[in-house]
């Protein structure tokens, strides 16, 4: 798996202050994508041990961080590698949460075992393709109004999609 960007602190990809990892590779090819250069699975550099150590270290050092966001590309095209990383993340950073962005719908993720495994490691998933005609700049953390902020735990418990609300 390659990654094509890392922001040690950001306010734009989820609630609170977050570290953001951009995972290379996406086949959704949405028109008007904010980051088309990241579609290429070979973009950026391999996600090496040093990089993953650095992210975990930042999480431990930076008292302001609320958690990590997986962005892309689409991390759900690399579910195994992402899950492996999140397992160590969960172990080392118990107080922090995880957001992830995907072009798949939440329902689709739930039907595919590997993607479902990754989804269950996340707290909030921003789902759905970006749709130019539904573009709305006033929506926090997403680009078009079809995209949802999904509370993963509540959705699993409820057996249906529960949208995440700011508490």
């Amino acid at each position: 798996m390659n990654v094509c960007g890392y922001l040690p602190e950001s306010i734009n990809e989820g609630a609170g202050l977050r570290a953001v990892l951009f995972v290379s590779g996406c086949r959704h090819a949405c028109e008007g994508c904010f980051n088309a250069a990241s579609w290429d699975f070979e973009a950026g550099e391999p996600f090496a041990e040093a990089m993953s150590m650095r992210i975990l270290q930042d999480m431990l050092d930076n008292p302001l961080l609320d958690g990590l966001t997986l962005c892309g590309g689409d991390p759900f095209f690399s579910p195994e590698e992402c899950s492996a990383f999140l397992y160590s993340f969960r172990k080392l950073c118990p107080g922090k949460n995880v957001w992830a962005y995907t072009g798949f719908t939440f329902e689709a993720l739930m039907r595919q075992p590997k993607r479902r495994e990754l989804a269950l490691l996340c707290d909030v998933i921003v789902d759905g393709k970006f749709q130019m005609e539904l573009r709305d700049v006033s929506l926090p953390f997403r680009g078009s109004s079809n995209q949802r902020l999904i509370d993963v735990a509540a959705s699993v418990e409820h057996g249906d999609v529960v949208e995440w609300v700011l508490r």
Binding site: S10, I11, N12, A15, G16, L17, R18, L64, D66, P140
Partner: peptide, 19 residues
Amino acid sequence: ELDGNARQNTAAFREIVQF
């Protein structure tokens, strides 16, 4: 300095101020 639309993420804003 914040890069981004702070009004959509007041949680982060508050945490920084209180820190």
